[in-house]
Amino acid sequence: MSFLFYILAAIAEIAGCFAFWAWWKLDKPIWWLVPGMVALATFGWLLAQVDTGHAGRAFAAYGGIYIVSAILWGWAVEGQMPDRWDMIGGAVCLLGAAIIFAGPRAAITGS
Rank of each mutant, 00 (worst) to 15 (best):
W21G: 08
W23Y: 15
W24Y: 14
L26C: 09
D27E: 15
K28H: 10
P29M: 12
W31E: 06
W32I: 06
W32F: 15
V34R: 03
P35S: 08
P35I: 12
P35W: 11
G36Q: 07
M37F: 14
M37D: 14
V38C: 12
V38E: 03
L40R: 08
L40N: 09
L40E: 08
A41Y: 10
A41L: 15
A41M: 14
T42N: 00
F43G: 04
G44V: 09
W45K: 13
W45R: 08
W45H: 11
L46T: 11
L46K: 09
L47Q: 14
A48G: 15
A48M: 14
A48C: 03
Q49C: 04
Q49S: 10
V50W: 07
V50N: 09
G53P: 04
H54M: 10
H54E: 14
A55Y: 11
G56F: 12
G56Y: 12
G56N: 08
R57L: 13
A58S: 15
F59T: 15
F59M: 14
A60C: 11
A60T: 14
A60M: 09
A60K: 01
A61R: 09
A61C: 09
Y62K: 01
G63K: 06
I65N: 02
I65W: 00
Y66S: 02
Y66I: 07
Y66M: 04
I67E: 00
I67T: 14
I67N: 02
V68S: 00
V68L: 09
V68Y: 00
V68E: 07
V68W: 02
V68F: 00
S69C: 06
S69P: 00
I71A: 08
L72S: 05
W73P: 00
W73I: 04
W73L: 00
W73T: 02
G74Q: 10
G74A: 05
A76T: 03
V77I: 12
E78A: 05
E78V: 02
E78S: 02
E78Y: 08
G79P: 11
Q80H: 09
Q80G: 06
M81E: 07
P82Q: 04
D83G: 11
D83E: 07
D83R: 05
D83V: 00
D83C: 02
R84D: 01
R84T: 11
D86G: 03
D86E: 10
A91Q: 02
A91T: 09
